[in-house]
Structure formats: C-alpha cells, structure tokens
C-alpha cells in the first residue's frame, strides 16, 4: 500500500514546499521518538523475531533450524487449529458488537451531571476489576443448568429446554461471550465517555434549533463525532477478542472438549507449554495477519468517511 492513499487530509501547514516537508518530518519524529525507541527495542524486534521463528523449528534449547513452510503445512492439517480458529471468530463476532453497543449506551447514560454519578461510573467499571476467579465462579453458578437463576428465569418465561451453558458444547461459547461482554463493557465505556466529552455542545444545540429529535441527534451528531473513538474501540475490541485468553482459561479452560478452545490458548500450549516455538509462532503469524487485515480494512473505511 502507498502512504498517499492512506493519508487523510489534516490541515496543510503551509504551501508544502520541500523544506517544509523536511521540517515536518523532523518535528514528527521528535514527537514520536521517545515512545518509538522503547517500542522498537522491546516490542517490535521481539515480534519480528517471533515471526521469523515461524519458518523454523526451535525448542528454545537448541539452535533454530530452517524448515520453510513446514509449520504452516502442519497447522493447516491440524484439526485443533481449525476448531480454535472457528471458536475465535465466533467469539469475536459475538463479543465485538455487543460490547460496543452496551459500552456506548452506558457512556451516554453516564455522560451527564447527576448527583452520585461518580459512584455509578465506578460501579460499571467494577466487573473489570473484580477478581477473575470470582467472576468465573459466580457466572458459572448463574449459568448452572439445573438450578441456576438464569435457567430458572428461562423456565419461568416458558422455555422448557433451557440450555446447558458451560457444560454443553453448543452453549459454552455463548456463556463465555455473555460473561466477557459483562466484564468488558465498563472498560470501553470509559473510552466512549472520553470521546463524548470531545463533542462540542454547540453541535447539539444547533441540531436542536433545527428541530432534530433525540434519535436524529444521536445519528447525525453523536455517531459521526465519535468516529475516531469508535475506530479505536472497534480495533481494540477486535484485537482483544482475537487474543482472548484469561477469561476462557479461568471460566471453561477451553472445554467442554474443545468447544471454547481459542487460538491464543493454542499458541500458549504449543509454545511455552510444549516447547514447539516454531509451530506456535506460525499460529500467531496467522492470527496477526487476520487481525491486521481487519484493521487495515477499518482504517481505510474510516479514512474514506473522513474525506
């Protein structure tokens, strides 16, 4: 891809002669450099090293041996890889839109001056800071097939065959998604709250003068103004959904069977668990490419809208 196609149109500083461009480059880099040095040394280089490993066989004790595409061939033939990939995609498809919608809703609800609003904001952030073990135990109890409150409620409203949730292959993933949405929405609410604060009040007032209803104001003022925040939230949510690890380990540990096994679990088990670092790097390279292509797509969409 070329930079030109990606570059949005920030305000041109001057006529854009060559000297100005060089000066801008210098200025830009001085801003970026403090972060970039640390990022390059401690994140980017190890990441590149890990990707290089995906073409090698390496147990961490011996010298790496070049094997070309062997790891990828093994991966494509592995049943477990496909199961984990499918589970990861299903998780992301459930987790991303639900969390986004709820986080935005909560942020709108909490973006006002009310007595005690600080308390409510903290409360909604609570799931994110509650111990994961506590979350897993309580939600598993809520989901309990025989006497859990959720199934009792479902029975009460006339659903006779209530799902088995975490002890059923079909329902374990929805159960995990519900729990993760519940846990994460407070986190993303914080981001939306910051985004909402950036919308000039005048835009709403102008819309009101034009006679726009609440709903219209939401669609025509709030949503467009939140676009950069939404881009951030979508990318972070997509990335974190594809990397989901902790919650699944604590809640179902990938089970029952392989019903909730996801890619990052596979990467962890194959790599540091069994010492097949080349193979596990190959899986992470694939995961990376998937997420990167989704992100680039979103990036382009965002820039097209901005034009």
């Amino acid at each position: 891809m070329t930079t030109e196609t990606l570059t949005p149109a920030p305000v041109p500083v001057s006529r854009g002669n060559r000297k100005q461009a060089r000066r801008n480059t210098l200025i830009g880099w001085t801003f970026i450099l403090p972060n970039f040095l640390g990022f390059l040394a401690f994140t980017l280089i190890p990441v590149i090293a890990a990707f290089a490993l995906s073409f090698m066989e390496w147990t961490s004790f011996t010298a790496p041996r070049w094997v070309g595409l062997e790891n990828f061939q093994r991966m494509l033939q592995s049943d477990t890889f496909w199961v984990a990939l499918r589970n990861t995609v299903v998780y992301a498809l459930g987790h991303v839109p639900l969390t986004m919608a709820l986080a935005l809703g909560l942020a709108m609800l909490l973006n006002r001056k009310l007595k005690g609003i600080g308390f409510f904001r903290v409360a909604i952030f609570f799931p994110y800071i509650t111990s994961l073990v506590a979350v897993a135990v309580v939600w598993n109890m809520l989901f309990s097939p025989d006497n859990g409150p959720i199934n009792q409620f479902l029975n009460a409203i006339g659903i006779a065959e209530a799902p088995g949730w975490t002890s059923s292959s079909d329902w374990a993933m929805p159960a995990v998604i519900i729990t993760s949405v519940w846990r994460d929405m407070g986190y993303y609410m914080i981001l939306y709250l910051a985004g909402l604060q950036a919308i000039p009040t005048e835009l709403y007032e102008a819309a009101e003068v034009d006679g726009a209803s609440g709903w219209q104001r939401f669609w025509n003022v709030t949503i467009p103004s939140l676009r950069p925040t939404t881009f951030f939230v979508v990318v972070m949510l997509t990335v974190s959904s594809f990397k989901v690890f902790d919650l699944i380990v604590v809640m179902t540990n990938g089970g029952p069977g392989r019903a909730t096994t996801v890619l990052s679990q596979l990467i962890y088990q194959e790599g540091i668990g069994e010492g097949k670092f080349g193979y596990s790097s190959a899986i992470s390279l694939v995961l990376f490419l998937i997420v990167l292509s989704i992100t680039v797509l979103q990036f382009k969409l965002q820039q097209r809208r901005e034009r």
């Binding site: 292959s169 029952p256 069977g257 392989r258 088990q269």
Partner: peptide, 20 residues
C-alpha cells in the same frame, strides 16, 4: 505425553458431562 494428555483431557470432559 504432553500432547496425549491434552487430548485425553478434552475427551474426558465430553464423556463426563454426558455429551458423548
């Protein structure tokens, strides 16, 4: 053993929850 252990664990789950 490591890889076998993982598979046996997963299938154990399914038998014990009555799915298989």
């Amino acid at each position: 053993s490591g890889a076998v252990d993982k598979i046996l664990n997963q299938e154990h789950d399914l038998i014990m929850v009555g799915e298989r």
